[in-house]
Write a protein that binds this DNA or RNA. Structure first.
Lengths: 219, 219
DNA sequence: GTCTATAAAGGGATAGAC
DNA sequence: GTCTATCCCTTTATAGAC
């Protein structure tokens, strides 16, 4: 098995079939609210229909059952969140500043209520829906890793960093960024971090990362 | 002085009520199997009773309901796993070797099927059972952080490391250790890592950590 | 396509005998 | 303490009218 998984094509029935404003869109929105706040098992199709202002029959006319609706909701949300991972252009700036901006953006997304909610529900149901774990991983954590590794590789080519394995280096930075905060939110210990706290986490992580990955003479 | 931080007192109603071999123990074992493999919502009390070779009435005689049974299972499992986090005595060895051993033990626990299963189900239900998220976090991730921070502090006192904030440094090492592997198992992308793969992850993490936290002249 | 009404099944929890 | 049998409710999913 290869170390990295090539990005799979997205299942066709999910990629684009839903236009905003339509009943399917209302249904997906209601499903997102309920599934992410109460989990898969505790959410009833009845409640989804009620929240979407739609009858159950209409609901079943668009989605063959609870599982398909759940999968459609998760896949759509993964696509939406993955679009927020495109890093700003950081080519012509100081490495430390560029990494700090990437770090801030990453933590902003990682700790956002929608991302936390989707993370929770996908972890919860990845045993029942193995496909969803893969979709989420590829559109979220793996895409972040790819983006960051690409940046690190370019910085290394310019001699600003010393990076042997850009993927591993990216994982190291991501790990240092998220470990101080992610689990606390995921487990409900804290429900948010202030901008100042996030800034401290970012600067600590970048600082340690640069000590590890900037060639000694340049310090 | 012990290398590890003293274990916190365990909530009284969980600590010792259950002796092995008794029916409550059978019930907890069955609950663990089913809850961790199928989740809270998809597991029925019927199924638990059947798996435990016990009638439903017996089940309800020992646990007031599904939620209490779930909480008892999670709490017990947290206690069991937290006992595996006590690091071996690593005081009188090379820092790199000591950290590598800590790292191997940590990943061994983190990636073990029971730990993954409990992590999944607690993340899933931490919205419904806020208390459980806290219990898991304190007995798992937080205890690991405490242990490691204690070791790092001592190493810093001996001049082997330069550590300003031992908790933050511990989080950095933990993050670099887990990020390359944890999510892949959690989301079912991979179901295990070979010993060689783990060893590589550990040595990469320790190497980067030492570059960041060993004073320059000692390199 | 959308609704109201209902069927069919399964779940949590309990009564009462032993 | 433990079992068998059962109550009652919610849930998924569908039938049939408009």
């Amino acid at each position: 098995m290869p170390a990295t998984v090539p990005v799979q094509p997205v299942p066709s029935h999910i990629s684009s079939g839903i236009r905003p404003g339509t009943k399917p869109a209302q249904i997906i929105a209601a499903a997102k609210d309920l599934f992410t706040s109460q989990g898969f098992g505790a959410t009833s199709m009845d409640a989804i229909a009620r929240t979407a202002n739609v009858s159950k029959a209409t609901l079943y006319a668009h989605f063959s059952g609870k599982e398909e609706l759940f999968a459609a909701m998760v896949s759509g949300e993964c696509r939406a969140q993955s679009r927020m991972l495109t890093s700003p252009d950081v080519a012509d700036r100081d490495v430390a500043e560029a990494l700090a901006e990437i770090g801030r953006n990453f933590l902003g997304l990682l700790l956002s209520p929608p991302a936390i909610a989707i993370h929770r529900v996908v972890v919860a149901e990845s045993a029942r829906f193995p496909e969803l774990g893969r979709i989420f991983f590829n559109s979220g954590p793996n895409q972040m890793r790819e983006n960051l590794a690409g940046y690190l590789r370019k910085a290394a080519e310019r001699g600003q960093l010393v990076v042997e394995d850009s993927y591993r280096a990216a994982e190291h930075l991501i790990g240092m960024l998220q470990t101080p905060v992610h689990l606390r939110v995921l487990f409900g210990i804290k429900d948010h971090f202030t901008q100042g706290e996030v800034e401290k986490v970012v600067s600590d992580a970048i600082s340690a990362f640069l000590r590890a990955y900037v060639p000694c003479p340049q310090r």
